[in-house]
Design a protein around this nucleic acid. Structure first.
Length: 858
DNA sequence: CGATACTTAA
């Protein structure tokens, strides 16, 4: 890694990652689904706490309600804010203990009494009074505060603090209590209260210390309010206080939690060095955390190297955070390397290390490797914790390996770890994927019965699952429950809704939802964009029923979908404001959405919209992934203009030459030129999970087939077969096409028949019965609509292949080996089986024209 | 003197 520059330079230099002009060709092919990137801080801070910024004149504290629901014990969900995923790093598992603190045993006694009166503030007051003479020093009170905080007794802690401050004479002792209190409130996620404690202390004259400021900075950081943290940091300097190591560390840490740009954190780091404050391990660990947020693995490696240069030890946190950055950056091979080096550096990987790398593999689609690491963990005796169990569970759920997922649940139970909201949501996702709606409902009820209130993700999962299954009525019902619960929609929920609309061709409604979410300050991500891109070329409209009397006379309006929906009276009896979504879902449920009639002008326009979207994504630093690529190719396949499709791909090459260059090259018939590049693309896809990989091959084959590059399509399909993209798709007696798109399937039929032919010509016998399976159109929008079956039927008829529909199964075409062999021996057969490209590169005709290649068995 | 650190669900 940049070994030519001295490491101490590397930290502040502009990194290639941020230099889009130079580097955007390399970094766009990220396989992980969500890029946290650098989100705009302004939107994230839409709901700043405690905006009553005027200094409180009243030395009493603000009313304590609303308190977090459960204050009696420290549950896993114990935090003040639960609305955002940016603030996931709250460390209530690692409590500050009073071990080694210099409190007296009387303080312990006082604590026991106080806990007994939990919730009764007056009783607490009398306990404190009765101990007043015995509790001498502020250490005793700090101990009490901390222990009350650890037990979630926020209001008691504040009472105790007020009491202690009142009886204390010495300023610096009051100051100690203040910084402790701010820290505790910060840990409890109550920045609003922390701020008012701070302001009061300042007003009363004992809060103007570097400790109080540092604690407040950290409190803001914990809740993700990085801008506020930096403001406090600046105001501290204005007060004439000098930030010290801890202060700087707290600010940098806040940057990491708030998802701030790496460069801004580096600026603070530079300032600290310039002021002569020597960074320590925690500084670097926090800087690494900033990198990990944005997946800036190169910068993280630089930091890591710089630590060695400065002679700073690296601990388990250093390694875990570095690994997180490297994993989020999609560099799993490097992650593996780093992890392997840990033991020889005497830092043994722990459960967090494993969870991090395992999740990295899982997100990269390398599920086998993820599962291997779990085994490794078991072998070397690292016990699984809640997080690792949930990670394992979600991998199985994602793979649809439900038996194993349930096994994980059992194992969790026997190890004494109860299911939590994460577990339930992962299970719901798993059932949803398999379309097990009864179980889904049952589990949802169980979850509620176990008092895990469903959160946004729960509802997103349910809405997504039901709409993917076409069950819009249920999806709508869950949406309504979600609204009723008063939850705020997030990017996942919006994406689920948008996806449902897109899959039904309601692009314009989807676009208006995209606007709506943006207006609400919710940043769309790659999943959102992939759905919308996928919708282009699917135009449909909701059908407007003038008078719902007979339905024969529904006027089919051609104007914009959004307008149609807007003018449609709610069929729910009453019109709910704000509920565009419910209306549209109502339409979907009533099957009043019809495809718009073929309109090639419109489709061409839509294709070009993709370019606009792509630019927008680039602007928002949302990295396209393989799903984006597949979606774009699918949109092209739905469009009839070769010119438009090729213009689009040509333009997209500016963003990622490798990926779009390969597609464009194959489409234009320059196969020879791009085939090496194509191979490395296929290598990358090979590492992803099977459904993503097959979607990629399906999309690429479809566009080639659609635009007449049939030989190219066939080569791609064979590449996919060689790499086992479609499981057990092919043997001598049976060709299973049910996971393939129509283009891929057709190209495959030709290849398979050619292969069978070579068996015949080598003098071997064919199996008695040959069959071609098309399934029931699993991959088309409506299960069982048979698009694939019809395409294959037409193809077989077209080439005169003697197959017929099986009696028992209309998705299966059968023939006998003898009949097929006879047909294959006919003189004209080879000619119809060999595929050709409409376009070949005139300068390199040799490659595509060698018939030998096609006759040989593959 | 008191204030600062890691991993999970689409």
């Amino acid at each position: 890694m940049a070994s030519t520059t001295p490491p101490h330079c590397s930290i502040t230099s502009t990194t290639p990652y941020h230099n889009h002009n130079q580097n955007h060709h390399q970094n766009h092919w990220s396989s992980h689904k969500v890029s946290l990137g650098a989100s705009s801080p302004s939107t994230r801070n839409a709901s700043k706490p405690g905006n009553s910024s005027t200094l409180s004149r009243d030395p009493t504290f603000p009313p304590l309600s609303p308190l977090p629901p459960s204050t009696s014990e420290l549950g896993p969900d114990f935090r003040g804010r639960r609305s955002t995923r940016f603030v996931s790093k709250m460390h209530f598992g690692r409590l500050k203990t009073a071990m080694g603190s210099r409190h007296s045993s009387v303080a312990e006694e006082a604590l026991q009494q106080a806990i007994r009166f939990a919730g009764d503030d007056n009783a607490l007051e009398s306990v404190l009074l009765s101990f007043e003479t015995k509790l001498s020093r502020s250490e005793d009170y700090t101990f009490l505060l901390r222990e009350l905080g650890n037990r979630g007794e926020c209001s008691m802690a504040i009472r105790c603090f007020e009491f202690a401050v009142r009886r204390e004479r010495k300023r610096n002792e009051q100051g100690k209590l203040t910084s402790a209190m701010i820290s505790i409130l910060g840990r409890l996620g109550r920045v609003d209260l922390a701020k008012s404690v701070f302001e009061t202390a300042n007003f009363e004259g004992y809060g103007n210390t570097v400790y109080a400021f540092s604690a407040l900075i950290s409190a803001y950081g914990r809740s993700g309010f990085c801008e506020e943290a930096i403001k406090v940091f600046e105001s501290m300097k204005e007060c004439g206080l000098k930030p010290n190591l801890v202060t700087y560390n707290a600010v940098i840490d806040a940057c990491g939690k708030g998802g701030v740009e790496f460069n801004q954190a580096v600026k603070i780091f530079d300032e600290m060095v310039a002021k002569g404050v020597q960074p320590d391990r925690i500084t670097f660990n926090s800087l690494l955390a900033v990198c990990s947020r944005g997946g800036l693995w190169q910068e993280a490696m630089n930091m890591f190297n710089e630590m060695a240069y400065r002679g700073i030890d690296r601990d388990i946190f250093t390694y875990n955070t570095l690994l997180d950055a490297v994993c989020k950056g999609g560099q799993m091979d490097l992650a593996y390397e780093v992890m392997s080096e840990m033991s020889e550096k005497n830092v043994l990987p722990n459960v967090v290390t494993y969870s991090t790398v395992i999740d990295g593999y899982a997100k990269d689609g390398r599920l086998d490797e993820a599962l291997n690491l779990f085994n490794e963990m078991k072998i070397i005796g690292i016990g699984l914790d809640r997080v690792s169990y949930n990670t394992l569970l979600s991998i199985y759920a994602k793979l649809g390996r439900f038996e194993e997922a349930l096994g994980v649940c059992k194992e969790m139970e026997t190890s004494g770890i109860k299911k939590d909201a994460v577990t339930y949501n992962a299970l719901l996702g798993g059932y949803g994927k398999l379309g097990k709606y009864d179980e889904l409902k049952k589990l949802f009820e169980e979850m509620k019965a176990e008092c895990f209130s469903p959160n946004v993700l729960t509802y997103s999962t349910l809405i997504d699952a039901y709409s993917k299954g076409g069950l819009y009525k249920e999806a709508m019902e869950f949406f309504r429950q979600f609204k009723q619960a008063g939850l705020k929609a997030d990017v996942v929920l919006y994406s689920a809704l948008i996806d449902a609309l897109c899959k039904n061709g309601l692009v314009e409604s989807a676009a208006s939802l995209l606007d709506e979410m943006t207006r609400e300050g919710i940043r769309p991500n790659i999943v959102t964009y992939n759905s919308i891109i996928d919708a282009f070329g699917r135009s449909a409209t909701a059908k407007f029923e003038a008078d719902a009397t007979d339905g024969t006379n529904g006027t089919h309006s051609e104007c914009s979908t959004y307008m149609v929906i807007d003018r449609t009276e709610s069929m729910l009896g009453h019109i709910e404001e704000d509920n565009q979504v419910i209306k549209i879902f109502g339409q979907l449920a009533a099957e009043k959405v019809l495809p718009l009639k073929e309109d090639s002008d419109r489709k061409s326009q839509e294709i070009l919209c993709i370019l606009v979207l792509f630019h927008k994504m680039h602007e928002l630093e949302i990295k396209p992934n393989v799903v984006t690529f597949s979606a774009i190719l699918n949109a092209c396949s739905r469009c009839n203009s070769f010119e438009d499709a090729s213009i689009l791909l040509e333009e997209l090459r500016l963003f990622d030459n490798q990926v779009y260059g390969v597609a464009q090259g194959l489409l234009m018939g320059c196969r020879e030129e791009v085939w090496v590049q194509a191979q490395s693309l296929f290598d990358e896809v090979k590492r992803m999970d099977s459904s993503t990989a097959s979607a990629f091959y399906n999309a690429l084959t479809d566009i080639l087939w659609h635009f007449g590059q049939k030989r190219g399509a066939q080569l791609v399909v064979l590449e996919g077969k060689r790499r086992h993209v479609w499981e057990n798709a092919w043997c001598d007696s049976c060709l299973d096409l049910h996971l393939m798109s129509t283009g891929a399937a057709q190209a495959m039929v030709h290849a398979w028949l050619l292969d069978i032919r070579s068996i015949v010509f080598e003098g071997y016998e064919l199996p008695k019965l040959l069959s071609i399976l098309t399934g029931w159109g699993k991959h088309s929008k409506v299960a069982g609509d048979g698009t694939l079956r019809r395409a294959i039927e037409a193809l077989l008829r077209g080439i005169g292949a003697p197959f017929r529909v099986a009696k028992s199964n209309i998705g299966r075409f059968v023939s006998t080996g003898a009949v097929v062999a006879a047909w294959l021996k006919e003189s004209g057969t080879l000619k119809v089986l060999i595929l050709h490209d409409d376009r070949t590169n005139p300068e390199s005709t040799t490659f595509g024209e060698l018939p030998d290649l096609q006759i040989l068995p593959f």
